[in-house]
Amino acid sequence: MLKSLIYIFCFLFLGELIHYFLAIPIAGNIIGMLLIFLALFFKIIKLEDVKPASDFLVKYLVVFFIPYGVGLMVYANIIAAYWIPVSVAVILSTLLSIYVTGAIYQKLDKK
């Protein structure tokens, strides 16, 4: 468990390092995710070396963003002031994105 956690932290650290020094508009943890994926893909690291900690983190993923959900209370007035455009945009865009993805997949799958 500890070894796999160190691996995950090292990839996160590397991602943050790249983000900091290259100043690209991609978050360090997303760079870390891409790097660990590539490292596994090209067999630079072994799946069993990173699996214990990564399974744990993915399992409890939702716990880690609860504080952000609570933080919404600070900004509730902004959402309340613009609830109509926000609702319209979120509902239509979500259903549109779901439909377009599903329709394209189904169409291509038939061939």
């Binding site: 956690l5 943890n29 870390g32 399974d55 983190l57 993915v58 409890y60 993923l61």
Partner: peptide, 12 residues
């Protein structure tokens, strides 16, 4: 722990 868990998604 959000940071490390995004990295863990790469493993997933």
């Amino acid at each position: 722990f959000l940071g490390p868990s995004v990295v863990a998604l790469g493993v997933f």
